[in-house]
Amino acid sequence: MVEAAARRPPASSPSGPLAIRVRRFGEITKEVLRNPTTTIGLVIIASLLLMALMAPIITEANTPDAYQMPRDWGAINEPPGTPGHLLGTTSTGGDVLYGVVWGARTSLRLSVIVVGITMVVGTIMGSIAGFIGGKVDEIIMRLVDVLLAIPELIFALAIAAVLGPSFGNIIFALTVVFWVKYARIIRGQIIHVKHNEYVDSARVIGDSKLNIYRKDVLPNSVTPVVVQATLDMGNIVLVAATLSFIGLAEAGLAEWGVLVSEGQAGISAGRWWASTIPGAMVFLWALAFNLFGDGLRDVLDPRTEGR
């Protein structure tokens, strides 16, 4: 054959299907780590997740509910550095370190639940709209437009206000609000992707609609959803903290927004730690996922990917 031989990888490399996929994952990882800001984001995320997962080891879990702040009435308003209370205590005797660590766990739970549900719901709705089209598309997108027209914070606020203040309701409210973005993204992607000739190729060989969606359309549409999900892992914690800050979560919850809210009264008296430290955690969490998400977007950009 006179044609230029395959350029990559070297023809000698033994390659089975699994090896190929592992190598591809490795390539993407290497690509991600080439960018220093993305790497910083990834390192912060890894530390935060580690902290959340090891919460019961780092601190002694409160009983009966570990997500409630422990109360030590013998040690209120202790400054950071106090023995036994490394980051100080709150005005109600809550250990700030406990709040930081279990707050990370709360944030992780919150963002995994909300992102998980909204990503799935949004992808399903957007897929139906984009892949089927016509009237179905119109109805779904009307709903999406309406939901998008309302600022998400205000909408979540309204829902949480109606249902009463509890962290569970914040999760619910955020779920209702956040799926539309995914629906919109995936629909746009699908409408673009389904005109590719590899979709027509699959039709010509007679494959079913469902298979074409599963094998051709979805995998080639899903990248921006993954990026958005990464960004939302951070954003949702920020929005939830805002909502609990203004009092929509239960008092005493080991959640960063609640801690900021409860600690703010002491700032004027010089007790900065009870609210600043949890506030910094919210900031760190949101920043880390945004740094990583942005880097991921560049690496997974379909224009550069795999060419």
């Binding site: 299907p17 190929i20 590719n196 000739e197 590899y198 027509d200 190729s201 699959a202 010509v204 060989i205 007679g206 494959d207 079913s208 298979n211 094998k215 051709d216 995998p219 080639n220 795999g306």
Partner: peptide, 27 residues
């Protein structure tokens, strides 16, 4: 069957050659 003008866009970039050529046999 159909062979498209643009052999790049008519092959799913995420599928291995084995899966592309073997797909009709699977269907």
């Amino acid at each position: 069957q159909f062979v498209f003008q643009d052999a790049f866009s008519s092959l799913n970039p995420r599928h291995l050659v084995k899966d592309i050529v073997g797909r009709p046999l699977r269907v």
